[in-house]
Amino acid sequence: MRFSKITWALPFFALLLAGCEGDGLATPDPSLSGRDQEFLALAPKADIPSQFQRYEVADPTGEKPGTVIVDTKHMYLYYILPGGKAMRYGIAAGSEAAGWTGTATIGRKEEWPHWMPPSDMLKRWPHLQPTADAGGLPGGPGNPLGSRAMYLFQGNKDTLYRIHGTNEPEQIGQAVSSGCIRMSNIDAIDLYDRVKVGTKVIVE
């Protein structure tokens, strides 16, 4: 996980963190908000392999329209559409040791979310402790959750796993995360606009 050096962040973040995940836009998209256009222009960019770019495909899952299926083996996320179709996105997911599987629902959605390093991450990367001490990192292009976050719940309990944007779009298609499901920032926005709180998510 990287963080970009950006002028609006607190000064010590620039010393601790180096680069942020996220796909940018080659040209402004008028359907996006002004904040989205501004932040995406500042976020890191990468050429994502064609097989991990967003496509509408035949539904390979047989699940009900409106369901999200995460295929961690092949690094795809599917949003099931009516008529036997699905929107397929490339993702980065957890390694076998860090990955999470199960059924959940989207319990909360946030645009350009605030990020607080979880306790298990602080144990692995103590250099992030000043970020926690400062109350976390505000939303924006320097935030590792990227443009959008969809929080996975089981019942009323937060699983602590999320579907979110990424500041390392070059790693889409790889098993590299700490368990969360990363998408390019522009794909995270697209999925966010399709799902709602209560959407069923199956991670396999």
Rank of each mutant, 00 (worst) to 15 (best):
H74T: 03
D158H: 09
R35T: 11
R194M: 12
L42N: 12
G66S: 00
L137D: 05
P44S: 15
M1A: 15
T159M: 11
Y89I: 02
G99N: 09
G99W: 00
L160P: 06
G142N: 03
A46I: 07
A41S: 14
Y78D: 11
P44Q: 15
S147M: 10
G136E: 01
I163P: 04
A46F: 02
P28Y: 07
P144M: 08
F13G: 09
G22D: 07
G62Y: 04
G107H: 05
F153N: 08
E111A: 12
Y76V: 01
F39S: 01
L191K: 02
A14E: 14
K200Y: 14
E56P: 00
N143P: 00
G90P: 03
K64E: 15
D133E: 13
S119Y: 11
D23A: 07
G84M: 01
G140L: 06
F3S: 10
D23H: 02
S95F: 11
A9N: 05
M183G: 01
W125G: 01
S4P: 09
P11C: 05
V176D: 04
Q171E: 06
G179H: 05
Y76E: 01
A18F: 12
D193T: 08
A18N: 14
M183N: 00
E111P: 05
V197N: 11
R162T: 05
D36C: 09
L25C: 02
A132W: 09
S31Q: 08
F3H: 07
L152Y: 05
K200F: 13
P44L: 09
T166P: 01
W100V: 11
K5W: 15
Y76P: 04
N156P: 06
T105F: 11
S50N: 12
T27V: 14
P11Q: 11
Q174H: 13
A97Y: 06
K196G: 03
M75V: 10
A98P: 02
S147R: 12
W100A: 08
R194K: 13
P44W: 10
G136P: 03
A46W: 02
I48R: 02
A149W: 04
I189E: 00
G179P: 01
Q129H: 10
T199E: 03
S184T: 15
G107W: 04
E168D: 14
T166E: 06
Q174L: 14
P117W: 05
V203I: 15
F39W: 13
A175Q: 12
A58W: 10
I106R: 02
L17H: 03
D193L: 06
F39Y: 15
A104H: 07
G135E: 14
V195W: 06
R162A: 02
R162E: 00
K123V: 07
G62R: 00
M150G: 00
G24A: 14
T103W: 02
E168W: 03
Y79Q: 03
D158W: 07
H164F: 00
